[in-house]
Write a protein that binds this DNA or RNA. Structure first.
Lengths: 247, 247
DNA sequence: AACCAACATTGATATGGATCAAAAGGCGGA
DNA sequence: TCCGCCTTTTGATCCATATCAATGTTGGTT
C-alpha cells in the first residue's frame, strides 16, 4: 500500500492532459515554472490518496485513471461528491486541509504541485487563474446536474444517467476510434456507483440487470458495457434528449 | 408582474454587499468602472428572473432578498440547484444562455452588469477574477454538501439541514443583535423547500410538524422559526456536531 | 366583514428502494 | 489446480416517503 513515484516522466509538452488540465493555457515559460514545483504520484485501485481533514500540502491534476471525492457521515453513510477523470483538478488553493476524502478507484497517476508555490503562481499567472476558474465553473455545473439526479431521478434513471456520463466522456477521449459500437469499461465497482448515486449496491445491481434485460445495454463480463443506442440510453436517463451528445 | 428599477441607488461605496460580493476586492477606480456597466433590477416574490435557455446579456449580484436556481425535467419534476442569498453571484461569464431558471422567492433586488464589458473586466481586473474564483469554489463546496443531503439523508435530517443552513447564515448576517434566542423567517414556501430537498411538499410539512412536536423548533405562524437549541438542531441534521457554528 | 386563492396540514394507502439473507461468479495466491 | 476472498447477483420482506384526497389557515381584495 505504498505510493510509487511514476518513473521516467518527461516534460509537460508530452503530457497526455496538456491541453485540458489546469495548465492548458500556459506558455512554455510558464510550464517551466510549473515543472519546478511538480512531482508525480501513483496509486493503485482502492488506495486512499488523502483523508478529509488531512493537512494538504499539494494540489494536483489527474493524469490517468479515476479518483473519487467522498463525504462520510458519522454512522458510515457515504456520498461521492466528485468523480475525477484525467485532467480534473484536485484541491483548493488557499485551503490548508482536505475537505473530502480522495480515493483511487482505479490505477491512478496524479501530477502534484506543491501548494504554496502553486498559490503564488495563481496570483502571478493569469493563464492558470483563468483556466482554474473555467474548470471550477464546469465542475459546479456538473455538481448541479448531479443534484437533479440525486434529488429527483428514479433508480433506473440514475443508473442510466451515470452510464450516459461515462459513455459521453469516453466518446470524447477516444473520438478517433470510429468503431460504430459505443462501448467502455466501468471504472467503478457497484459499491462506488451506489455511493455516486445515493443508492444501495443491491439496487445498482438490480437496475443494471434490468437495463440489460431490456436491451438498453449489453454486458461483456461485469465491467464492460456496450451501448447499442445512445439515444435510447439518454432517454432512459430522463434527459432532454435533443440530440448532440458529442458536443 | 413587471420589473421595477430600484430607485435612487447611490454609488457602490454605500452598497450593503460591498464587502462580500464579486466586487469585494475592488479599489475605488475599479468600482468606478463597474458603476458604468451596472444597473439595478427588482423583482417581486414568485417572479421569474430568467428561464433556462434564455439569452443572458448580464450577470448579477443579489443585493437583497432570495432567489433560486432550478432545473426541471420534461415531466415537471424540478430540483433546486442553487439558493442565492445577498452577495451571491448569478450567471456564468462566457456563457450566452442561462443554464438554469432563476426565480425570486422573495422580494429581490439584483445589481446587474452588462455581460460583455464585465467579461472584459474579468480579464483586466485580477481583483474581480480572484474574488469570482473564490466565490465559485465556495459554491462548489456548498453544492457538494448539498449532494450529501440529497443522496444520503432522511427526510427529517434534510429538513433539519436546511433549517440549520438558514439559521447559520442568519446568525452571520445579524450577528450584532445579541438576542439569546435564535429565530428567523423562512424565505421559502413548503414547495420551494421540497424542491430544494428532493422531497414532496407533504413530506416537508409532516417533518416540520414532527420537529415542532419534538421541541427541536418552535413555530410562530407558518414562517417564523425559533431554534431553542442550535446544537440539537445540528444533531438532528446528522452533521458532525463538533461545535463552532458561528465560524 | 366576507370571500377567495394560495399556502399548509393531516389522513389513508401505495410503492420504490432499503434491508436482510443467501448463493454464484471471478480472480489472485499457495 | 484448488482455495478463499471479494464482488456481484438474486430473492424475500419491510418501511420511509410518495401519492391521492380532504380539510384547515391566512392574508389580501372588494
Amino acid at each position: 500500500m505504498q505510493d510509487m513515484v511514476a518513473p521516467n516522466m518527461k516534460d509537460c509538452s508530452d503530457c497526455p492532459i496538456r491541453h485540458r488540465a489546469v495548465c492548458a493555457r500556459c506558455e512554455a515559460d510558464e510550464l517551466a515554472l510549473l515543472e519546478d514545483i511538480k512531482y508525480y504520484r501513483s496509486f493503485s485501485a482502492g488506495q486512499t490518496v488523502m483523508w478529509a481533514g488531512d493537512r494538504m500540502d499539494f494540489v494536483a491534476s489527474v493524469v490517468s485513471g479515476v479518483a473519487s471525492l467522498t463525504q462520510t457521515m458519522e454512522d458510515g453513510r457515504t456520498q461521492m461528491v466528485g468523480l475525477l477523470l484525467p485532467s480534473d483538478f484536485v484541491g483548493r488553493p488557499g485551503r490548508e486541509t482536505a475537505a473530502y476524502t480522495v480515493t483511487a478507484t482505479s490505477e491512478l497517476v496524479m501530477c502534484c504541485f506543491r501548494r504554496k508555490p502553486f498559490e503564488q503562481m495563481i496570483d502571478t499567472t493569469p493563464h492558470i487563474a483563468h483556466r482554474l476558474l473555467e474548470m471550477t465553473l464546469d465542475e459546479l455545473d456538473a455538481a448541479r446536474e448531479w443534484m437533479l439526479v440525486l434529488g429527483r431521478k428514479t433508480a433506473r434513471e440514475k443508473i442510466a444517467s451515470l452510464l450516459a456520463i461515462i459513455a459521453r466522456r469516453d466518446a470524447i477521449l477516444s473520438k478517433h476510434s470510429e468503431s460504430k459500437i459505443l462501448a467502455f469499461d466501468l471504472p467503478l465497482t457497484r459499491e462506488a456507483m451506489s455511493d455516486y448515486l445515493g443508492l444501495t449496491l443491491e439496487t445498482v445491481s438490480r437496475q443494471i440487470s434490468a437495463l440489460k434485460k431490456d436491451g438498453v445495454i449489453v454486458l461483456e463480463g461485469k465491467r464492460r458495457v456496450q451501448v447499442p443506442d445512445m439515444y435510447r440510453l439518454m432517454d432512459e436517463a430522463g434527459d432532454d434528449s435533443d440530440g448532440g451528445f458529442l458536443s
